[in-house]
Design a protein around this nucleic acid. Structure first.
Length: 904
RNA sequence: GUCGCUGUGGCGAAAUGGCAGACGCAUUGGACUUAAAAUCCAAGGACCCGUGAUAGGGUCGUGUGGGUUCGACUCCCACCAGCGACACCA
């Protein structure tokens, strides 16, 4: 085998690693080693389409990192698994008439085959899928932990429900009342929620799965209907989820995304007394609003309540009832997203009722408008049209008064004029005016003063709000984890409202066999069609019906990183000691599309488990890196329409033309898509160029976090590099496999040593910084250097092989063998850069005049400033330029540059 | 609309206060070959001056405009473009 042939050596080494369990990870980190390292990829959803080039990007990065640290002596946990529940699998199953478990397992087998083909150093013995019954047994168990936990706001901690203090008033009502009180406080609770129900898909959808009132998948109409749903009380943890971001080594961008999603705001709740009117029999005294700008209270000229607000009907006088009712009903049919469409004109209706502004004592009208959301704050606002753009827009449309109470600190006269005339609205901070006792105060001080005064009068208080909502956790689908919950049946055989957990000993609750799990257009979950033997349970003499909702796809991915630590543990969801030894995850790499939801949900579950004493760290993922998207070239015609790549041809001049119209096209970068025929299949790349070339190319394209376009010529380029490495070491003309004659077991000279050790230093640094593209460039320089040498020290070739091993492991193993080593190099010590051998005697230093390079002089390393200056002045050209000029300043950075500043 | 990221040769990129364009692709020239492929060696930002040809020298150049600095791709301000996320949260 004289030539580099990845098709032969790659399967050979993959078989070797598998047979020798080279990457098996021990239960505990080696106490003699250099510590533990837990490196995790976001596990894939095993779609029928197989691996996409985007998958190996992150996986190669983590693989390089793991292989490097193994060579540095760390014990590395590096697992892989599958997030396999979910709607696409179920849809596919319905379409092809195969059971979802069967198609899911086939897809997993295909993914595993493709991943193994790329030579990743996973411990495959730890592989798992969220659909494994033995896995979701513990997903259900964790759900029961959530069900068994309430959040104690005083201790800021989740505690067992048995420790929830029961108020005397509840206790006297008996066991049922206590149970219902407890149920209302659990982290997993049931609630009547307005959901996005899609009859065609037969399920509720998350808000992000609904676009303009239609489903993202299939474009079916979506309705808003109230349904009894399971909710998870993530809002209880909002403050900790926000505060603990500080502990994490995540990019500022991702932290900000999460912080914005949680959306903490501080302001005040203010009570507005309702003006009693003869017609309305309103028992309530006041409406409570939430505002972040209590300092603008004097400018509140009307109130707005959400259409869902419980007081709407009570405060509306009969004369207005019909139109208010009509408006509220119309609003109830709109989705949240419809209502919040920004470019939409605001609408609203006057209720006919008035409230008293507590500062001015003036009556102000109360309106209903759907720009106020029922489920944020108190569902009601005080409108300050002079200082809030939304209120301003609404006030202009309905001709409501605008009263200016804040002046900007630094505005141009022109701006000030417009603000004073009410033409534009000023929403910033400034100085209070026309606000009685607040006049002259800065916004911050005015807020404090008005809150204090409201508190004194019992009319308001400081308040905090979050955008984050509780998590709607149930789906009406077949292919998900069943809830381990039982509904007690009354004497008439229908649920009586009492619920209980399935005893832990009875877990898992497996999915029943269903002949027909297709959607039927009604919101009852498909599991309701299960046999009575599954559906009905008798326990302690009572009859129960199982909960028939299933969990959303997010559930399984909320804790898989814990199961990887002890995947076969039968006693617990994770072995306690092993958890303490391996957690937290040291490096987590995945796509930015999971920046908010997955990472927030997983952090939430982790904190609950932490509070309940099941895990040892408050946060699961210490360092997070988002790999960039891999895009493809696409072509656009004069109209801006995209042209499929098979209709594009490049001519001799390098211009791209449409093969049919001959029109010259513009090359752009776009997402890969089947329609554009520019999807790159990783398996095809492996066949043509080899797995090592694919891995190397994905890393050489550019920085890990950047989005970058795929180029087959680039793949060819790195393959060319691997060929050069091969020829550097191996005699490619010989019939049998042997070292090149240039490779000799001789000591390296000073020049060779410098190249070797500077490469080691650079590559080591680059790997630790995840800067793989520059690490590869350094190895290319190394190869370019030694290719020119007719004698290549064997030790230098060994160092190169070791450095290349994390990137191109198959080739490196093969070269290692040819260099005379019997073992795999997976655990060979990483080469160390010898600082002594990096030292050089002299450097070339640029000499600048007024910042422009005018000469270059070789100077000894470590020269002092004075000598550097005189050497520079000795230079003929420099002397010439400085002749007769006055030198005003000389800047000298020894070893870097000398700059003479002269008067011109 | 708001927020974030990105803007550097023909292309992917490097350098993140000190010689802009490392490394790779594509291109061009040379060696090898009967020839081609492969391989190896070499050249290369643009423009100008200079020379028989070299050598050599100059000006400009990192999206645009301004600023800080002896010195800016790098830091600051404003703007433009592309991509992405969020979107009436009071």
């Amino acid at each position: 085998m004289p030539r580099y042939n990845p098709a032969e050596i790659e399967p050979k080494w993959q078989a070797y690693w598998e047979k020798n369990k080279t990457f098996r990870c021990p239960d505990f980190p080696d106490p003699q080693g250099k510590g533990k390292l837990y490196v995790l990829d976001m596990f894939p959803y095993p779609s029928g389409a197989g691996l996409h080039v985007g998958h190996p990007e992150g996986y190669t990065a983590t693989d390089i990192y793991c292989r490097y640290w193994r060579m540095q002596g760390k014990t590395v946990l590096h697992p892989m698994g599958y997030d396999a529940f979910g709607l696409p699998a179920e849809e596919y199953a319905i379409r092809t008439n195969t059971p979802p478990r069967q198609s899911t397992e086939a897809n997993i087998a295909n993914f595993t085959r493709q991943l193994k083909m790329l030579g990743f150093s996973y411990d495959w013995d730890r592989a798992l899928a969220t659909t494994d019954v033995e896995y979701f047994r513990w997903t259900q168990w964790i759900f029961l932990v959530l069900f068994d936990t309430w959040y104690d706001p005083d201790l800021q901690k989740g505690r067992p429900i048995s420790q929830l203090p029961i108020p005397e008033a509840v206790a006297v009502l008996g066991d049922e009342a206590i149970a219902s009180y407890q149920d209302r406080h659990r982290l997993a609770y049931q609630d009547d929620a307005l959901v996005n129900w899609c009859p065609a898909l037969g399920t509720v959808l998350a808000n992000e799965e609904v676009i303009d009132g239609r489903s993202e998948r299939g474009d079916h109409p979506v309705q808003r209907i109230p349904l009894r749903q399971w909710m998870l009380r993530i809002t209880a943890y909002a403050d900790r989820l926000l505060g603990d971001l500080e502990l994490l080594d995540w990019s500022a961008g991702i932290k900000k995304l999460q912080a914005d999603w949680i959306g903490k705001s501080t302001g005040a709740e203010v009570d507005f007394r309702i003006v009693k009117q003869d017609q309305a029999s309103c028992p309530e005294e006041s409406i409570r609003v939430y505002t972040t700008r209590p300092d603008t209270l004097f400018g509140a000229t009307y109130l707005v309540v959400a259409p869902e607000h419980p007081l709407v009907a009570k405060i509306t006088p009969d004369a207005y009832a019909a139109q208010v009712k009509e408006y509220c009903e119309a609003a109830s049919f709109k989705s949240d997203r419809d209502r919040t469409e920004a470019d939409k004109q605001k609408t609203g209706v006057f209720t006919g009722a008035y409230a008293i502004n507590p500062t001015t004592q003036q009556p102000i009208p109360i309106w209903v408008a759907d720009y106020v959301l029922g489920n944020y704050g108190t569902g009601a606002i005080m409108a300050v049209p002079a200082h809030d753009v939304r209120d301003h827009e609404f006030a202009l449309k309905y001709r409501l008064p605008i009263v200016r109470v804040v002046e900007p600190l630094d505005a141009t006269l022109e701006e000030l004029e417009k603000i004073r005339s009410g033409e534009i609205c000023f929403a910033g901070e400034g100085i209070a005016v026309s606000s009685g006792e607040l006049d002259g105060l800065r916004t911050k001080d005015a807020k404090a003063k008005v809150i204090a005064s409201l508190e004194q009068q019992g009319l308001g208080r400081e308040a905090v709000n979050y955008k984050l909502r509780d998590w709607l956790f149930s789906r009406q689908r077949f292919w998900g984890e069943p809830f381990p919950i039982l509904h007690e049946l009354g004497p008439d055989g229908t649920p009586n409202g009492q619920i209980r957990a399935v005893p832990v000993a009875d877990l898992p609750v497996d999915l029943p066999h269903l002949e027909d799990y297709k959607p039927h257009g009604r919101p009852e979950p498909p599991l309701g069609k299960a046999d009575a033997s599954w559906l009905y349970v008798e326990l302690d003499g009572k009859k129960y019906r199982r909960e028939t909702n299933t969990m959303p796809q997010w559930a399984g991915s909320c804790w898989y990183y814990l199961r990887f630590i002890s995947p076969r543990c039968t006693e617990a969801f994770v072995d306690r000691e092993q958890e303490a030894a391996w957690m937290p995850v040291d490096l987590y790499i995945g796509g930015a599309e999971h920046a908010v939801l997955h990472l927030l949900y997983a952090r939430f579950w982790h904190k609950v488990l932490y509070d309940r004493g099941y895990v040892s760290h408050p946060e699961p993922f210490q360092k997070l890196v988002n790999q960039g998207m891999i895009l493809s070239y696409a072509y656009k015609d004069h109209r801006g329409a995209l042209v499929p790549v098979d209709l594009v041809q490049e001519d001799d001049q390098g211009a791209v033309k449409h093969t049919q119209t001959g029109e010259e096209l513009q090359r752009i970068v776009a997402k890969m898509s089947k329609a554009l025929k520019n999807v790159v299949d990783p398996e095809g790349v492996v066949r043509e160029y080899g797995a090592d070339a694919l891995r190397l190319y994905e890393m050489f394209m550019g920085p890990l976090e950047a989005t970058k376009p795929w180029s087959m010529q680039g793949v060819n380029g790195v393959r060319n590099f691997l060929d050069r490495v091969w020829r550097l070491v191996v005699d490619s003309r010989s019939e049998d496999l042997k070292l090149s004659e240039a490779v000799q077991d001789i000591p390296a000279g000073a020049e060779h040593d410098r190249v070797v050790h500077s490469t080691i230093a650079a590559v080591t640094q680059d790997i630790e910084n995840l800067s793989f593209n520059t690490a590869i460039a350094r190895m290319m320089e190394f190869v370019n250097h030694f290719t020119k040498e007719s004698v290549r020290p064997k030790s230098a070739m060994e160092n190169l092989t070791l450095m290349l091993a994390p990137f191109a492991p198959h080739l490196a193993e093969e070269l290692w063998r040819i260099l005379g080593h019997d073992d795999s190099l997976a655990y060979a010590p990483w080469p160390e850069a010898d600082q002594e051998k990096l030292k050089i005697a002299s450097v070339e230093v640029p000499i600048q005049v007024n910042g422009k390079v005018r000469a270059k002089i070789v100077m000894p390393v470590g020269i002092d400033k004075q000598h550097a200056q005189s050497l520079a002045l000795d230079n003929e050209r420099v002397a010439e330029l400085l002749a007769g000029k006055e030198i005003t300043k000389v800047v000298i950075i020894p070893g870097k540059m000398v700059n003479f500043v002269i008067k011109s």
